[in-house]
C-alpha cells in the first residue's frame, strides 16, 4: 500500500489550469486554506470552482483564478457577505452557476454514484431555473407524475479538503461535530488532495475516537498533506475555532496588500 504524503506545493503542482475543482468545508469552516494558499502561489488559473463558498472562493476570486463558480452562497459566517467575492461579482468578473444548497448536495451525490443526474424537489418556480437555462426537469414515471429538477452530476477533476487526522494512506478523520460534505467531494473527484492537522499511524485513528469519525476512505484520496493550522483562519473544531481577528483583517485589507503578505513563506503550515 502506497504512502501518499506530499507537500501542499506538490499537491497543487498536480493541478492544471482549466480544471473543475471542488473545495470542501462550508462557509468559513474547515476549509483547506493551506492548499488554497499553495494554489495562489502557483500559476493555475481558469478554474471552475465548486464550493459551499467561504474565504477559499473569496481569495481565488480576488486573485482572478476563477472562471466559473458553482455555489449556493459565499459567506464568512460571522461576516455574512464575503467582500472579495462580492467585489468580483459586482465587477462581472466571474461566471456563476447559482444553485440551491440541496441541489448542490444532490449534484455531488450524483457524481459520487456515477449517475448523470438526481431528481430534486428544489429549484422549480425559483429564478435558479432562469439563471441556469441548461437545467432540465424530469417527470416521475409512477402514478404521482411529479416533476423535479434533474440536478446534473457535479463531477470534479480534483477536490481539496482538510480534516483533523489522517494516515499516510489517505484515510481521513473528522473530530468536530460536522463532517460537512468532504467525503462526497473526494468521491465525486478524479483526484483528491486531503490536508490534515496531523498524520498519525492507522491504529491511532480509532484508539480514542469512534469508527464513524473515519469520514474519508483512502480509495478516494490521491495525496495526503500534513498541514497543522491548515484550515486557518477558518474553524477546525475541536483543534481550533475560527480566528476572528485574522478573518476581519482578511476582510478589511485591500487584496493586493493582503496577497503580498499571504504569499510570503507560510508560517503556520508544516509543509
Amino acid at each position: 500500500m502506497g504512502d501518499k504524503t506530499m507537500t501542499a506545493d506538490e499537491a497543487v503542482a498536480r493541478l492544471r489550469s482549466g480544471m473543475t475543482l471542488g473545495i470542501g468545508g462550508w462557509g468559513s469552516r474547515r476549509k483547506p486554506m493551506a492548499l488554497v494558499r499553495a494554489l495562489l502561489r502557483s500559476d493555475v488559473r481558469d478554474l471552475t470552482v465548486v464550493s459551499y463558498g467561504g474565504p477559499d472562493v473569496g481569495m481565488l476570486a480576488a486573485a482572478g483564478r476563477i472562471r466559473k463558480l458553482v455555489a449556493a452562497f459565499v459567506t464568512l459566517d460571522s461576516i455574512p457577505l464575503e467582500p472579495h467575492y462580492r467585489a468580483a461579482r459586482e465587477r462581472g468578473a466571474i461566471d456563476l452557476m447559482e444553485i440551491d444548497e440541496a441541489m448542490f448536495l444532490w449534484g455531488l451525490r450524483a457524481a459520487a454514484n456515477r449517475l448523470p443526474f438526481l431528481p430534486v424537489r428544489a429549484g422549480l418556480g425559483s429564478d435558479v431555473m432562469r439563471v441556469n437555462p441548461g437545467l432540465r426537469t424530469v417527470t416521475s414515471p409512477y402514478d404521482d407524475g411529479e416533476t423535479f429538477v434533474a440536478m446534473p452530476a457535479l463531477r470534479l477533476d480534483a477536490a481539496l479538503v482538510h480534516v483533523n487526522r489522517a494516515d499516510r494512506l489517505g484515510n481521513g478523520q473528522y473530530l468536530g461535530p460536522d463532517p460537512y460534505f468532504d467525503d462526497l467531494f473526494c468521491a465525486a473527484a478524479d483526484e483528491a488532495y486531503m490536508s490534515c492537522e496531523r498524520i498519525v499511524d492507522t491504529a491511532e485513528l480509532t484508539k480514542e475516537a469512534a469508527p464513524q469519525t473515519l469520514l474519508i476512505g483512502r480509495h478516494t484520496v490521491t495525496g495526503v498533506v500534513e498541514a497543522p493550522g491548515g484550515a486557518h483562519f477558518t474553524s477546525c473544531a475541536p483543534d481550533y475555532g475560527r480566528d476572528e481577528a485574522a478573518q476581519r483583517e482578511y476582510a478589511t485589507t485591500p487584496w493586493p496588500e493582503y496577497a503580498g503578505r499571504l504569499l510570503d513563506p507560510p508560517a503556520r503550515e508544516g509543509s
Binding site: 463558498g53 455555489a71 449556493a72 452562497f73 459565499v74 459567506t75 455574512p80 457577505l81 467575492y85 462580492r86 461579482r89 459586482e90 465587477r91 462581472g92 447559482e98 444553485i99 440551491d100 444548497e101 440541496a102 441541489m103 430534486v120 424537489r121 428544489a122 429549484g123 422549480l124 418556480g125 425559483s126 429564478d127 435558479v128 432562469r130 439563471v131
Partner: peptide
C-alpha cells in the same frame, strides 16, 4: 441573492442559499 441584474448585480448579497429547497 442579489440586488439589480443577476448577471452583474448592483449589490451581491448571500446567494440563494437553501431558499428554493425550503419553500418547495
Amino acid at each position: 441573492s442579489c440586488v439589480g441584474d443577476w448577471a452583474r448585480p448592483k449589490r451581491q448579497l448571500l446567494g440563494v442559499r437553501g431558499a428554493p429547497v425550503n419553500t418547495l
